[in-house]
Amino acid sequence: MSGHHISSAKFLWGVAISLFMLTFITVAVTWVAIPEPWNVVVAIAIAVVKAIIVSAFFMNLYWDTKFHSMLFVLSIVFFLLFIGITLLDTLYRTDPIPSF
């Protein structure tokens, strides 16, 4: 059954340790002065890797039906659309925002 994958305790610990290490790395890269846009890119890239690890191996998407992965990915796609369309407005205003 696709929904009943049982991970070994060792494997789950391995996943958690890799997440702890990535957390350390994401803090450690702020000690190195990375120039402006790239520090954000690196921070988000590490967060995305961590999110993929959590969703694939803790939320079992790796062993699950592809339908659940599709739901998850589609929510991200619509979220990116949300960001994109909002920025098309906010980035190109001549007068940013009046009072708030």
């Binding site: 929510s75 979220f79 960001i83 909002t86």
Partner: peptide, 28 residues
């Protein structure tokens, strides 16, 4: 489980609104 994943999709978009506010103001 499928019902829960559909709920999680709505949760992502729920938090998504706040992330969009974060991004718009950070750009400003």
């Amino acid at each position: 489980k499928m019902g829960m994943w559909v709920f999680l999709v709505t949760e992502i978009l729920f938090f998504g609104g706040l992330f969009v506010a974060y991004i718009a103001y950070r750009a400003w």
